[in-house]
Design a protein around this nucleic acid. Structure first.
Ligand SMILES: [Zn+2]
Ligand SMILES: [Zn+2]
Ligand SMILES: [Zn+2]
Ligand SMILES: [Zn+2]
Lengths: 134, 134
DNA sequence: TTCGATATGTGATGTTATTACATTTGTCAA
DNA sequence: TTGACAAATGTAATAACATCACATATCGAA
């Protein structure tokens, strides 16, 4: 799965809701936005979110129970590096970046401890540059 | 606040529940464990958890909505370094560690992007050495 | 066309966290 | 001692987030 047009109807609706948003959305916010498109139940949203997560098109922000469209949609799964998110607690803006050194240090720890990593969450909460100067 | 004996009754009960557990507990699991001690409502747990988080005696694991007693209770707030958690999805065991290089790289990103960090979550999900060999 | 895999619709339920308000307890200064 | 304030507690209700169970529909390959 690489392109939007291969998504199913519900998956497209959910992805487009996230893509046009200026920040992360909760599943229930997405549900409310899609009522007019026929959405009636949370599961319609969660099922689409699960697929979009599989496809690497969106990310889940664990610390705020919300979802965001991937900011780097053309770097497939971000190589194999870990992704970090800086989340502004004032305006909700999310910056997505990856750092090979962080990725390497985490891998060193997991290797030397025999830990088989499956998914890693790195989320920085705080106040972004715009909101900090206000 | 540095020692257990300065905690209030409810705070002590919640902290001890976490301290004797062999892994992270959800707030409602703690509530159930403390029914016999007079706990009746979620808020009694959440209020104690908030204080214990303030005191740095416990941590919240964002990716599994659970809480765990700090594994390094004598290193006050872990210096000022960020803490990473490796969470086994098989047995629930949590390993807590900090890495100055990761801390430094995150700080470099926030500094160069004008982002004022308040709290950072690093959680590695996977399978621990014990469970991997089974 | 028939079968299986995938996707969808819907209601009910389960899990996690907060709001609102009343009461109690501890601290300290007048 | 007492009044006043801060901190802690008790309780019910509600909000927010997520999944289960079951029925139906859609699509592609055999
Ligand atoms: Zn991304
Ligand atoms: Zn901001
Ligand atoms: Zn700790
Ligand atoms: Zn394990």
């Amino acid at each position: 799965m690489t392109a939007t047009q291969e998504l199913t109807k519900n998956q497209s609706l959910v992805f487009n809701a996230l893509a046009r948003a200026d920040g992360p959305l909760s599943a229930y916010t997405i549900l409310d936005q899609l009522r007019n498109d026929g959405f009636r139940a949370p599961l319609q949203v969660y099922r689409a979110l699960d697929k979009l997560l599989d496809y690497g098109m969106i990310h889940r922000l664990e610390s705020i129970n919300a979802f965001v469209a991937c900011a780097h949609p053309h770097s497939h799964s971000h190589g194999h590096g870990m992704i970090a998110f800086a989340i502004c607690e004032k305006c909700g803006q999310v910056s997505e970046f990856s750092d090979d050194i962080i990725t390497g240090r985490v891998r060193e720890w997991t290797n030397s401890n025999g830990f088989k990593q499956s998914k890693t969450t790195i989320e920085i909460r705080g106040v972004c540059a715009n909101c900090g100067t206000a």
